[in-house]
Design a binder for these strands. Structure first.
Length: 285
DNA sequence: CATTGCAGGGCGTCTAGAAG
DNA sequence: CTTCTAGACGCCCTGCAATG
């Protein structure tokens, strides 16, 4: 697919230096349901994630990767029900994780993936969260509690009653997913803070987003915390003045030395106006 | 056992910003 | 632009551990 089929409009820009050159781009609808725009959105997101993770306010953070399935009951209803279950479950889980993270807000990116073999084609959720430090700390504390009990037992002392029911943090997250009425935590990894490695955990799944056509209206395909943000809209350029147009006309070839289609990366020539067609691209207008 | 202190989590409200 | 989602935050209730 060469350009967005949903928008029948192009934008053209000329150069201020008076050179006889014109550039054009195809306006696109930017919707995830569009066969042209979905891969374009995915590329934009991949680039953004890598850049954002490298920025100084995120570069030092340690990340954890988790895969969570939807509750088994939602799988009996519909694929959309599994998405709703995961959305609702995340709302609850976020609060618990914030406490887990020492009361501090953390950042995350979540993506959804359709089960390969699910009878009803439900979804599960992959996410990375910047709770790596809290996770490592709790893992340490847990190991210390076990160690203290072990030495006490060796010395013949009756193990003191645990002050709290200590849990390994991985176990804690598993239980929390269940308590938030989702399915099971199917996978969990401490990723660390190497930017490219962290990014690859998410970008891997972003291509798979394209196969998803069942999202409820307005549901974000890629959900990230507010601080993580999302790809910004391009600022209206001040270097060149872009004007809307319905097409490039055959007569434009006489007025310009070069007309370049930036979307298709294609220099427009006589060949683009075959057999009485007077405008370009011929699929539009 | 009853009492108390308090962390954790549910829920309602407000609103930034994403979707369309 | 308008609509609406979901994160931030504060209030309050619940349940658990500590204490006598």
């Amino acid at each position: 697919m060469l350009f967005c089929p949903n928008m029948k409009l192009i934008m053209v820009a000329q150069f201020a230096d008076g050179s006889k050159r014109m550039d054009m781009v195809h306006v696109r609808c930017k919707q995830w349901s569009c066969p042209y725009c979905a891969p374009a959105n995915a590329r934009t997101w991949k680039d953004y994630i890598l850049k954002r993770l490298s920025r100084e306010d995120f570069s030092g953070k340690s990340w954890v990767f988790v895969t969570i399935t939807a509750h088994e009951d939602s799988h009996k209803i519909s694929p959309q029900a599994t998405l709703r279950n995961l959305q609702r479950g995340w709302g609850k889980l976020y609060h618990r994780l914030k406490t887990f993270n020492g009361g501090k807000a953390f950042d995350y990116i979540r993506v959804f993936e359709k089960h390969e073999n699910g009878k009803y084609g439900g979804y599960h959720m992959h996410l990375i969260m910047s709770i790596g430090d809290a996770f490592a700390l709790k893992k340490d504390e847990f190991a210390q509690v076990l160690e203290r009990e072990k030495t006490a037992r060796k010395q013949g002392k009756r193990p003191r009653k645990r002050l709290k029911r200590e849990k390994h943090p991985a176990r804690w997250i598993k239980d929390a997913c269940r308590a938030c009425r989702m399915g099971y935590e199917a996978d969990m990894k401490q990723i660390g803070s190497v930017t490219t490695k962290v990014a690859s955990y998410m970008t891997k799944y972003i291509s798979k987003q394209l196969e998803i056509l069942e999202f409820p209206p307005r549901m974000r395909r890629i959900q990230a915390s507010v601080r993580f943000g999302s790809p910004k809209r391009r600022k209206t350029g001040n270097a060149r003045h872009w004007m809307p147009r319905s097409a490039i006309y055959k007569t434009d070839l006489e007025d310009y030395d070069l007309i370049f289609d930036m979307t298709r990366k294609h220099v427009i020539s006589e060949d683009d106006f075959p057999d009485g067609v007077l405008w370009y691209p011929k699929e539009l207008k």
